[in-house]
Computed example of a mutant assay.
Amino acid sequence: MTPPTILIVPGLRDHVEDHWQTLLAKKLPNARSVAPLEHDKLSRAARVAALDQALAEIDGPVVLVAHSAGVMITVHWAQQHSRPIHGALLAAPADLESPFPPGYPTTEALRDNGWLPIPRQPLSFPSIVAASTNDPLGKLEKITELAIAWGSRIENIGAVGHLNPAAGFGDWPGAEDYIRELVGN
């Protein structure tokens, strides 16, 4: 069997050079990333279309590795498309229904751009939600509720903030452990 392609689904800040997803994509020979958008960067529909386009360019099995709003891109995509997915790592989902700290899009802007409500239908593929106990963009209780609704296994990964460079994360070796587990499914 062909090993799954690892498809990185970044959040709204796209490809940050020292982000664990960017570092992971460089490290894994079978990894690709959803291309950054040039226009409509806050459009949910444009983000979902970009994910669908990236998937259309891949033959064979795929494991999705999403972070933050990338998780929401993934769950929105899953409600509209039926392509088989081998599994998904959904890391530090951003709770788009709750107000964000300054410097992030407002709830109104997210609603106006099609992000809300967050889908709560079960995913058609195995998934692991890796959630932080102190993520400023998603309280563990809410992320746990979403994971249950999606049929995902929830993994409490401790006090790691939003699991991004601002929280002290470049490399995140835990991602590779979860990916190995999903590939083995």
Rank of each mutant, 00 (worst) to 15 (best):
P101H: 14
I6D: 03
D14H: 12
D135S: 05
I143D: 02
A91V: 06
A46S: 13
L137S: 04
L96I: 15
A166L: 15
M72G: 01
L64A: 07
P29A: 11
S124W: 06
E176T: 12
G151K: 06
P93C: 07
V65A: 12
T74N: 11
T144M: 09
L7D: 00
G158M: 14
F125N: 05
D112Q: 13
V16R: 11
T144W: 06
E38Q: 08
V71F: 03
R111L: 06
A131M: 12
V9C: 13
Q79C: 12
H19G: 00
G138P: 01
D18R: 10
L89M: 07
A175C: 13
A94P: 05
A66R: 05
L163V: 11
D177N: 15
A149W: 00
F125H: 07
G161C: 10
L140F: 14
I6S: 02
Q53N: 13
P165R: 02
A35R: 15
L182I: 15
E38F: 01
S43P: 06
R180N: 15
D59E: 14
S33L: 10
G114Y: 06
D18I: 05
E38G: 10
A109P: 09
A166P: 03
D52W: 09
S124L: 08
L42A: 10
G158N: 07
Q121P: 01
V63M: 03
A31S: 07
K27D: 06
T144S: 13
G168H: 06
S98R: 04
K26N: 10
R120E: 04
G138H: 04
I58W: 11
H76V: 14
P3L: 04
E176S: 14
A147T: 00
A66W: 02
V71M: 02
E97M: 09
S127V: 05
D40I: 00
T74E: 06
T74W: 05
A130L: 09
R83I: 15
A54D: 14
P61F: 04
L90A: 14
V129E: 04
A35K: 09
I8M: 14
N185D: 04
